[in-house]
Design a protein around this nucleic acid. Structure first.
Length: 281
DNA sequence: ATTAGACCCTGATCGC
DNA sequence: TGCGATCAGGGTCTAA
């Protein structure tokens, strides 16, 4: 479930169960996800208090009072599920264990946070909080879309020599961190830019227009609780609803919401791209 | 340094 | 109902 809006939604869903709460016991059911889990992960987590949950790009960082941070990436199919907490008037009971429940954090006070990931493209690591920026998974990331380092001049400079299609360039996490396949498609539709155009051949004014559009699309998606495709759920079991606002993504053969032209699907760099051949030039 | 393609893994869905 | 092909919101690694 993981582009920036979904990860941010997960982070917000986990915060009430985790922030300020001690991990009574960490249960690690397999030694590896995408990569081997860090040495003695269960022992290093057990007994620590989670001070704060943060997000960097599509990563969640749980700062521990041990001086380490737990780095979490959801990959394609990773989910974080909270149970044993109150949700409004109702108590979320612990569900029966599921296949692919790889890591379970038993929190003091009875809450439980379960990391489930069928495809195992997800990852976890432990990093010294004060050296986090140098972590190999974080070091190469581009600016946060909502950060001060992401602005018109930056994006123009970052793209002006890229011969790759603009779709691929915006998916590159070195350029801007956090966009994925859904939101790149939606952004390019809103910007009326053809996803097949080479990044360096697009007028600087149009590249500049992408900055506010990226922020708008991501903000709206976060406000909607992200997108819930194929019944994926957020940490507390709620469904996001931004998928109802898609203009192009997953809408092949449907009419463009702006002009009625049939939305097309093509493949770029092995990923589906959806676009309106009339609106996007 | 950039870029295209293979690859990682499981499960749902679609056409036959 | 079964079976193979295809697809899926991620990213890394290799070779050119």
């Amino acid at each position: 479930m993981p582009e920036l809006p979904e990860v941010e939604t997960v982070r917000r869903g986990l915060a009430p169960a985790m922030e300020g709460v001690r991990i009574a016991r960490a249960q690690v059911n397999r030694p590896d996800l995408r990569w081997p889990l860090p040495e003695r992960m269960a022992e290093r987590l057990t007994g620590t208090k989670v001070e704060r949950l943060r997000r960097r790009s599509k990563y969640i960082l749980a700062d521990l009072d041990s001086g380490e941070s737990l780095l979490i990436h959801l990959g394609m199919s990773g989910r974080m599920m909270v149970s044993g907490v109150m949700l409004g008037e109702f108590h979320l009971d612990h569900p029966a264990p599921l296949k692919h429940d790889h890591v379970v954090l038993h929190m003091e006070g009875g809450a439980r946070v379960t990391f489930n990931d069928a495809r195992r493209f997800g990852a976890m690591d432990l990093v010294r909080t004060d050296r986090e920026a140098a972590h190999w998974l974080l070091a190469g990331l581009g600016p946060e879309p909502f950060g001060n380092d992401f602005h018109e001049d930056y994006l123009i400079e970052a793209l002006k020599r890229r011969a790759t299609p603009i779709k691929s360039a915006l998916l590159d996490q070195h350029v801007v961190a956090g966009l994925g396949n859904i939101y790149v498609c939606e952004v390019l539709h809103r910007a009326k830019i053809d996803p097949r155009r080479q990044a360096k051949r697009i007028a600087t004014k149009r590249i500049a227009s992408l900055v506010p559009i990226i922020r708008e699309v991501l903000s709206e998606a976060i406000a909607a609780g992200g997108s819930s495709l194929r019944d994926h759920r957020q940490a507390d079991g709620e469904l996001g609803y931004f998928q109802h606002s898609f203009h192009v993504y997953d809408r092949e053969d449907a009419p463009c919401t702006a002009c009625g032209t049939t939305i097309r699907r093509i493949v770029q760099a092995g990923r589906s791209t959806f676009f309106c051949p009339t609106c996007q030039k």
